[in-house]
Write a protein that binds this DNA or RNA. Structure first.
Length: 108
DNA sequence: CTGTTGACGCTCT
DNA sequence: TAGAGCGCCAACA
């Protein structure tokens, strides 16, 4: 786990937002990044640094790339499986029910 | 300090 | 309408 103060702050914010995403809803890296004034890449990187415990507690599968696309080469199958379990229908590597998109609030 | 990497997004072909 | 390329910047080796 990185020691940068900024990293810890951003991570806390990201975790808070992701945790606030209702089941069956989807948010994007761009939306979260825009809300926290950080780059989408950083949001993605934060999720890669999550421990197994955090990954199980945090609904990271509800966070996808812009356009509802799933960009997780390693965890693609697992993410799709989790989403389908929550009732989110996936199709061709992206969220089919795009209307379930949940934009993270700018202020949280 | 220097070079590579990446769960991304935008722009140009 | 798709695909390739570039920029972005923290983490890491």
């Amino acid at each position: 786990m990185p020691k940068s103060p900024a990293f810890a702050r951003i991570k806390k914010e990201i975790l808070a937002i992701v945790e606030a995403i209702p089941a069956g809803r989807i948010s994007t890296y761009k939306a979260i990044g825009d809300a926290l004034q950080v780059q989408p890449r950083h949001v993605a990187y934060i999720l890669t640094t999550l421990s197994e415990i955090e990954s199980e507690q945090l609904p990271w599968q509800r966070v996808v790339a812009d356009g509802g696309k799933i960009s997780a080469p390693k965890l693609f199958d697992e993410q799709v499986a989790r989403l389908q379990t929550e009732g989110v229908r996936c199709e061709q590597g992206q969220v089919a029910e795009f209307e379930v998109l949940f934009i993270a609030p700018a202020e949280l």
